[in-house]
Simulated scan of single mutants.
Amino acid sequence: MKVLIFGGSGGIGHSLCTQLLSHQPEIDLHATYHSHKPNDLGSGLTWHNIDITAEDDISKLAAQFSSLDWIINAIGLLHTPSNGPEKNLQSCQSEFFLENIKVNALPTLLIAKHFSACLKASSHPRFVTISAKVGSIEDNRLGGWYSYRSSKAALNMLIKNISIEWSRRIPKACILSIHPGTTDTPLSKPFQANVPDGKLFEPDKVASDILHIIEKANPEITGSFLSYDGQRLPW
């Protein structure tokens, strides 16, 4: 099996790599990083340095593969050193809003565009993107977090749209949007004080949940928005 993980240097992505290497020793595993390449996963993994928001980088990476069975996009942005989730309209800044769209939504579109031929060559293609429950329009009860919510809602629409097109072009494919739960990573660190007891998950648990969903996935559920426990979430 050949797998490519975008964001293998991040908290969830790194745990996905670790578990795949330990549980599937015959796997042909590839992962991307941007700034820092992990050096603790041994020689069983091929690293690729790319900018996930640059279409030329994604296109060049896709050209290196003739086929892939699974693609997992584990990259996401919630805050930067100077900006965080907005509490009100007055906190919104156009540059931060666009940066959220650029990192949280655009890459999935570009990956699907350039890697569709690679997945089509597989007998069991899977394409999964890490989303967030706060991207659900129907479930939004609190407001705020304008940039992050909007980017994840846009991501979910992309997942749905791609799944419809691929149901005709790649009928064996299953494409999913997965909410991993609040994970103990640098992304969630500034907001963990408000997480209810028992709802802050270690990356290894999250990775295990995601892989379990992918292993069970089939084309009948393509285009779904799922929680880490496999339950469907409202769009």
Results as ranks from 00 to 15, higher is better:
F6C: 10
F6K: 13
G8W: 00
I12A: 11
Q19D: 01
L20R: 08
L20M: 15
H23D: 15
P25M: 12
E26I: 11
S35N: 14
P38E: 12
D40N: 12
S43C: 10
W47P: 08
H48P: 07
H48D: 05
N49Y: 06
D51A: 09
D51Q: 11
E55F: 08
L61M: 03
F65C: 03
I75G: 05
L77Y: 00
L78P: 04
H79S: 07
P81T: 01
S82G: 07
G84M: 08
E86W: 06
N88L: 07
Q90T: 11
S94H: 11
E95R: 02
L98Y: 14
E99S: 15
N100C: 14
N104K: 02
T108G: 00
L109R: 08
L110Y: 08
L110N: 10
S116Y: 10
C118F: 08
K120Q: 15
T129R: 03
S131M: 14
V134E: 04
G135Q: 03
G135K: 10
I137N: 02
N140Y: 03
G143W: 02
G143T: 06
G144R: 05
S151Q: 07
K152E: 07
A154G: 08
L158N: 01
S163C: 04
E165V: 13
W166L: 09
S167Y: 03
S167P: 06
H179S: 05
H179N: 15
G181S: 13
T183S: 07
P186S: 04
P186W: 09
L187R: 02
P190W: 11
F191T: 07
A193T: 09
N194S: 15
P196G: 11
F201I: 10
P203Y: 02
K205I: 15
K205E: 13
K205F: 15
A207L: 11
A207Y: 00
D209S: 10
L211T: 04
I213K: 05
I214N: 01
K216M: 14
A217P: 07
S224I: 06
L226G: 05
L226I: 03
S227K: 13
D229C: 07
P234E: 11
